[in-house]
Amino acid sequence: MSFLLPCPNCGPRPVDEFSCAGEVTVRPQGAPSLRELTSYLYFKRNVAGVQREWWCHRLGCEAWFTAERDTRTNEVLSIDVPEPAGPAAPDAPPLPDTPAV
């Protein structure tokens, strides 16, 4: 695995800068049955073909995004950034003024 993955913020970067959280799964709603729960947790589709998966640019901008990748060729067909709900990112951590020591 040495393909380039396009980060939404940083552009194409070597794949070893990213962490992959596997294929996009659908978290069951309400009170899932045991089968629904274990399917969600353990049964992956593991396709030989195009798959939507979660990636995080861990050694870069730390952004999470989804990518459509062909698992046979490692060709990345598209990426998608989840929409944030609102403008709430905190500012830089409050660094106080120089204290009188």
Partner: peptide, 10 residues
């Protein structure tokens, strides 16, 4: 990223 809640993390 999954939930899209109105929250920021630093």
């Amino acid at each position: 990223a999954v939930w899209g809640l109105d929250v920021g993390i630093a």
